[in-house]
Design a protein around this nucleic acid. Sequence first.
DNA 1: GGCGCTTTGTGAAAACATGCACATGCGATC
DNA 2: GATCGCATGTGCATGTTTTCACAAAGCGCC
Lengths: 234, 234
Amino acid sequence: MPPHRTRRRIPEATVARLPVYLQMLIEQADLGIDSISSEGLAELAGVNAAKVRKDLSYLGSYGTRGVGYEVDYLVYQIRRELGLDHDWPVVIVGAGNLGQALAGYGGFHERGFPVAGIVDIDPSKVDTVVGGARVRSLDDLPQIVASKGVSIGVIATPPSAAQAACDRLVKAGITSILNFAPTILSVPIGVAVRKVDLAVELQILSYHEQRRANVQQSAQLHAVAVDRGRGASA
Amino acid sequence: MPPHRTRRRIPEATVARLPVYLQMLIEQADLGIDSISSEGLAELAGVNAAKVRKDLSYLGSYGTRGVGYEVDYLVYQIRRELGLDHDWPVVIVGAGNLGQALAGYGGFHERGFPVAGIVDIDPSKVDTVVGGARVRSLDDLPQIVASKGVSIGVIATPPSAAQAACDRLVKAGITSILNFAPTILSVPIGVAVRKVDLAVELQILSYHEQRRANVQQSAQLHAVAVDRGRGASA
DNA sequence: GGCGCTTTGTGAAAACATGCACATGCGATC
DNA sequence: GATCGCATGTGCATGTTTTCACAAAGCGCC
């Protein structure tokens, strides 16, 4: 039996880095580079070389000692592991600001996630055209999903409509959801959800800004205290 | 000396969850709820109650045993810790599809991150109006940053322009960057970067879809094997 | 004022992730 | 075809995050 039939589970942290390696490898391939070391890839991906090696070792032993990794082959293997050897059409729910931008964003299609359709509950938005796709009614969701074999849904609705959108996606047969609304969705087990909340990202940055400011202030206070101490002792 | 002058460092994982708690607490406050237990908050935030308690304990002892947490007070404390007691204006670089959507997205302003300006290198985009803001030249960046006290920059350029955009942001005095381009940025130490890559998110979902399919297939194979075994042994 | 109920806050254990350091094995060179 | 140099793959130590489990403590009721 081939050893990769029953594949050992890949740690989530590694799964999250594989797409980055993939991207970098594709860039290198386009530049005509056909071999790369863990150190080289680590530099490109902004991580440490041991981590790269350990991550890649979960896929199998695809490197050559003393040499490095063959770029094309690694691309092939990561693609296969991530399930990127075929396209995954996505359906977008919500044709507001963000939904429209996503539908018009070429990067999706280019990276294997063509937009199979965009739907909205608002009749005044239905049949308008955004980013080359005609907005369809939310009621058409099951038909779009079934006819195009869609398994990934993207929620780009206002927060108040997100759970309802989610429920309809699940009912239509969607099993993975990318949620842009600042809402915690509840889904049946077996449905994967990832959340992207722009405000949360900014708030995390805000924490670091805040902290930086505090540290500086505290350093100043400390300096003053030291000066006082000196003055007093002199 | 008050114990929170030299505040212990909050783990990164906790910092990433605080904004979610905050959001949920604000929702509860709006509903007129003024007290909540760790269990209740955990449910809302989609995490486990012990984690909520440990996370909140990093801020200090703000709960009441046998009762729970006072919603308003907790909101105040989390806000303070995250540095959200004042607005943080942001500047957006890149007025393409995504940049325009971000500029027009009300959620930013609403949650304390007003758009101080949006700039683009393309002269044909300059002076067009998107989402209520006039696009300005990339050359105006230092002036925008200085005059409005901006410390957070958002990169919404094509990947090939991202590093250059980053360099100019840093030179203009920006110390935190939210990067939407699928590019690893190199920045001087002291500058915080967070990356949001939509394709990466989809690829992670793809991995789980792929895996699901494999497991099912493998289960089927296994069922067949079992049946064979039975048939043979019967 | 004391008792019991409830929920916090936190040590300690377990699980997970990272990074080091080096044995292993491959290719190149002589 | 033996030797050398180099980069992989991995055992092990370290650090971080999650989870458990329970003592400590506030509130209401008698």
